[in-house]
């Protein structure tokens, strides 16, 4: 997603990361109980996972995150008027890039004389799921996080 942000930065596209709650709390990163702890964890995310986009911290009760669905790693795209033009319950940079290409092509299509009418579509997309990398991330959280995930999903 960092690469995607860089790729579209000169096309009037902003990209941010909103820090939510710990999806897999473990011995090394406990569940959140204070806003100070939440800021520390967000800084760890920035430094260890090299997130180059601006990071915004949600309220401790997750007011923003909850209003948008409470999914652990979802992505939304908003236009300048604050209307969502894309929402996905999981983050996939290919999917997000395709959506940006589509909306950024609208002015050109209109200049070409096309009469465009919006419509909504729902579809299932498939992302690559690197289970080994995911488990490495869980191990960073601590054995408890690994144990709990395996208990749920095997």
């Amino acid at each position: 997603m960092n690469n995607l942000a860089e790729r579209f930065a000169d096309r009037k596209v902003g990209s941010v990361f909103v820090y939510t709650h710990e999806a897999h709390p473990g011995e090394n990163y406990l569940h959140l109980t204070s806003i100070e702890q939440k800021f520390r964890h967000a800084a760890e995310l920035r430094d260890q996972l090299c997130v180059t986009r601006p990071i915004l911290v949600d309220a401790l009760d997750g007011a923003c995150h909850r209003a948008y669905g409470t999914m652990p790693n979802m992505t939304w795209i908003f236009n300048r008027r604050g209307r969502p033009v894309y929402k996905a319950n999981w983050t996939d940079s290919v999917s997000v890039g395709n959506a940006l290409d589509d909306v950024l092509a609208l002015p050109r299509r209109r200049r070409e004389g096309k009469r465009l009418t919006p419509f909504n579509v729902e579809r299932v997309e498939y992302r690559e799921n690197d289970r080994e990398a995911f488990y490495r991330g869980l191990e960073r959280c601590g054995p408890k996080a690994v144990r709990e995930f395996k208990a749920v999903f095997g």
């Binding site: 902003g14 909103v18 939510t20 995310l45 983050t91 940006l100 959280c141």
Partner: peptide, 14 residues
């Protein structure tokens, strides 16, 4: 969202 034509917002945590 008012700062750009489009704004990508990813939600997540460490």
């Amino acid at each position: 969202w008012s700062a750009n034509a489009y704004t990508v917002v990813e939600f997540g945590s460490f």
